[in-house]
Simulated assay, not measured.
Amino acid sequence: MGMSTELPNSPPPPAEPSQAPSRRTFIAASTAVGGAVAAGALVAGPAPLGAQDAVAADGPPNGEVSLTVNGKRHTLTIDNRTSLLDLVREHLGLTGSKKGCNAGACGACTVLVDGRRVNSCLTLAVRLNGAEVTTIEGLARGDRLHPLQEAFVEQDAFQCGFCTPGQIMSGVACIDEGHTRSADEIREWMSGNICRCGCYVKIVRAVEQAAAGGK
């Protein structure tokens, strides 16, 4: 028998391992996906013009408040975020109350609300509907100063004067609350009012004088 000259079938070459996509391939694929997303957004289209106008016209909500300031009734429509300090200064022109820290830490903005002292910079005006507010402008009776105002003058209890309106308003409340039995008690109950000129000794003396009936 003659030998066959046909070669046996050789096995197929092994498959080459798959390679990770090149950087160029990855960028091309990413660009294609990004383009598809952008195309989808274009097909969807922008928000309707009316909706955009509604969003643009949507400002902060306003509210109406009616309150009595220094014996005079006021009814105002204000931004609900307006502080009592900004209401009396910007809307009513009563600039005696000072904006110091605007964070309730210095007491320069102290006013009385229903007879109680508050930091007006931290008090929302819209929450005071029907309230009675007294600022430094409301203490005097015509040309006659309040006894504590007179005491501040006589004791020379101020220098730059920036904190003085808040000091006086807090002092009036301190006297009305009965916290004037000693200098230490006055200092404690006046501690929320900061004097950057350091007139604390004379401020305490002025409160003592007014509490004693001006003597």
Rank of each mutant, 00 (worst) to 15 (best):
142 G>S: 06
72 K>D: 10
54 A>R: 10
206 A>K: 04
31 T>R: 00
171 G>V: 00
33 V>F: 02
104 G>P: 01
63 G>C: 10
185 E>F: 08
209 Q>C: 12
82 T>M: 13
198 G>W: 08
131 A>G: 07
168 I>W: 01
3 M>L: 13
108 A>Y: 00
143 D>T: 14
60 P>N: 14
54 A>T: 13
109 C>S: 06
116 R>F: 03
51 A>G: 11
46 P>Y: 08
103 A>S: 15
117 R>D: 01
193 N>R: 06
75 T>Y: 04
47 A>R: 12
105 A>G: 09
86 D>S: 08
104 G>S: 07
89 R>Y: 08
133 V>F: 01
3 M>V: 06
198 G>T: 10
145 L>K: 07
115 G>N: 03
39 A>C: 14
169 M>C: 09
68 T>P: 09
164 T>Y: 05
165 P>E: 00
187 R>C: 06
190 M>S: 03
168 I>D: 01
168 I>F: 03
2 G>R: 09
48 P>Y: 06
186 I>C: 02
6 E>F: 05
64 E>V: 10
123 T>G: 05
68 T>I: 13
62 N>K: 14
187 R>Q: 09
43 V>S: 04
214 G>Y: 11
6 E>Y: 10
5 T>N: 10
144 R>L: 11
62 N>A: 15
89 R>T: 03
206 A>Y: 00
185 E>K: 09
73 R>K: 15
102 N>R: 15
200 Y>Q: 13
22 S>C: 02
175 I>A: 03
91 H>M: 11
18 S>H: 12
12 P>D: 12
113 V>A: 07
99 K>Y: 08
132 E>F: 02
173 A>W: 02
63 G>I: 05
156 D>A: 15
80 N>R: 14
147 P>I: 03
146 H>R: 08
30 S>M: 10
197 C>Q: 07
73 R>Y: 07
196 R>L: 09
5 T>D: 09
56 A>R: 15
84 L>M: 06
124 L>T: 05
138 G>D: 03
60 P>G: 12
173 A>H: 07
172 V>L: 05
59 G>M: 07
130 G>I: 07
197 C>H: 08
49 L>G: 12
90 E>Y: 13
49 L>K: 15
181 R>Q: 14
113 V>I: 07
2 G>V: 06
13 P>N: 14
56 A>V: 15
201 V>H: 05
7 L>H: 07
60 P>M: 12
171 G>L: 01
99 K>P: 04
154 E>P: 00
193 N>D: 06
6 E>W: 04
208 E>K: 07
19 Q>Y: 11
78 I>T: 04
147 P>L: 07
197 C>Y: 07
33 V>H: 01
170 S>E: 07
213 G>Y: 08
